[in-house]
Design a protein around this nucleic acid. Structure first.
Ligand SMILES: [Mn+2]
Ligand SMILES: [Mn+2]
Ligand SMILES: [Zn+2]
Ligand SMILES: [Zn+2]
Lengths: 147, 147
DNA sequence: GCCCGTAGTGATACTTAGTATCACTTAAGG
DNA sequence: CCTTAAGTGATACTAAGTATCACTACGGGC
């Protein structure tokens, strides 16, 4: 089941607690990595009662509106949804090996955007980064990975 | 019709020159802003002979493989394809007002990625930025001049 | 605890972006 | 020219996500 903080944040966003939202958030929490909507639908179906397909999408949308979930577009244009501890707009470093998504702090990004604004006389109002690579843990494993 | 440099780059990528590729590239060149596949299909249909829908997608894929076209995912998750003068992987500042897409130089991005790698012990192998805002011309900043 | 308005749900039908297939055409190199 | 592999178009298909609408249930007020 989803942790209490998730429920608090759902309420804080003016949304209702429902078993469906609990289930979806719970599966995401359990997985600890970005999941596609289809994977989520299937996983939720397996773990106990099911959730309608439309509701999975609506729930993801709601949770994303509430800042609890964010989605990244993986190389290959696949959308993957992930549970975010930190609220508000932020970005991720996504490991292609294990799928872990590390949060990027705003103050790591802001100076970069500021530099862009200066260099191009462009006023940034929204940015979305997808940064892919290998996390520290998976880098250590590299010697033993299958080729 | 697409400019000669586009044709050269198609050839350089080991692909054939076809009227369809000329048309698609030509429409993109003409538009000077990112277009969705649907817009392209329609525009190509209007301007002279048509191009099959499947071929529009295939052509965009080919041109993207050749580094001639790139697509950005606009807020709202709409893919838009744009003609790129500079070859190789790069990023864009997209104006939401007029659609203009300014190229981002690699040396503007590299230091940022390097900083991320250091701060997170993460090995970046691919990044995709979508930066949206308002370009100099659209800010109404008519006094601005290139410097 | 019960009531009730409204947010949320599920089945289903639909849309839209993009892909697979396959017979046919055409670019381009010798 | 001839040849052949790359490319095309019609069509059928998949996969992601949305619209509809009757029904359900969350939760604030009492
Ligand atoms: Mn996050
Ligand atoms: Mn470009
Ligand atoms: Zn990893
Ligand atoms: Zn502009």
């Amino acid at each position: 089941m989803a942790s209490d903080t998730v429920r608090d944040r759902i309420l804080a966003a003016g949304q209702r607690i429902t078993p469906q939202r609990d289930l979806v958030a719970g599966v995401l929490e359990q997985a600890g990595r970005p999941l596609s909507a289809a994977e989520l639908y299937e996983a939720v179906g397996r773990s106990g009662r099911g959730v309608g397909r439309a509701t999975v999408f609506r729930t993801l949308q709601s949770l994303e509106d509430a800042g609890i979930v964010q989605h990244v577009v993986l190389p290959g244009n696949q959308a993957a949804y992930l549970l975010c501890q930190v609220a508000g707009h932020h970005h991720h470093l996504v490991c292609r090996q294990c799928g872990a998504a590390d949060d990027l702090a705003e103050d790591e990004v802001a100076p970069f955007l500021a530099a862009l604004e200066g260099g191009h006389r462009f006023q940034v109002d929204h940015a979305n980064f997808a940064v892919y690579g290998t996390c520290a843990r998976c880098t250590g494993d590299r010697a033993s990975t299958t080729s």
